[in-house]
Amino acid sequence: MSCYFLSQGKDLWNPSNSVARIFVDQAIMLAKEMGLDSGIEGIIEDECEIHGDRFTAFLHALLLRHDKSNNQALRSLLEGVTAIGLVITERAGWDMPIADTGDNSFWDEKKTQLARSMPTG
Rank of each mutant, 00 (worst) to 15 (best):
I44L: 01
D67H: 15
G93T: 05
L86I: 03
T101M: 11
G93Y: 04
D67V: 04
D67F: 14
S69R: 00
D95H: 04
W13L: 11
M96K: 04
R116D: 01
T82W: 00
F5R: 04
M1W: 09
A61P: 00
G102T: 10
G9A: 07
K110D: 04
Q113D: 12
G80L: 01
M34Y: 09
S38H: 06
G93A: 05
L114H: 09
A57Q: 13
M1P: 11
H51S: 07
A57I: 00
P15V: 05
L74K: 01
S16N: 09
I88N: 10
I40Y: 05
E90M: 08
P97F: 11
L114Y: 11
P97A: 11
L59V: 01
M118L: 15
W13S: 11
L59E: 00
V81N: 12
I88A: 06
D37Y: 03
N70E: 14
C3S: 12
Q113I: 06
S117K: 12
E79R: 15
M34A: 14
H51D: 07
D103L: 09
D108L: 14
L62M: 13
L114W: 08
D53C: 02
G9F: 09
R65P: 06
T89I: 01
I84D: 00
N104H: 10
L62S: 05
S18N: 11
A57Y: 02
A57V: 02
F58I: 05
T120K: 13
L6E: 12
I28A: 14
G93N: 00
L114V: 07
M29E: 15
T89H: 03
F55C: 00
D67L: 07
T56C: 12
H60L: 07
S16M: 03
H51P: 03
P97H: 11
E109M: 06
T89P: 08
Q26R: 13
S2V: 02
C48M: 06
A31T: 02
R116C: 00
N104Q: 12
I84R: 15
G35K: 06
D46V: 03
Q113L: 11
I50R: 08
E49W: 01
A61G: 07
D25S: 15
M118F: 02
V81Q: 08
L64R: 10
L36V: 09
E33T: 11
V19T: 11
G9E: 09
D53S: 12
I40E: 08
A83T: 13
R116P: 05
K10Y: 00
F106R: 14
K68I: 00
D53Y: 04
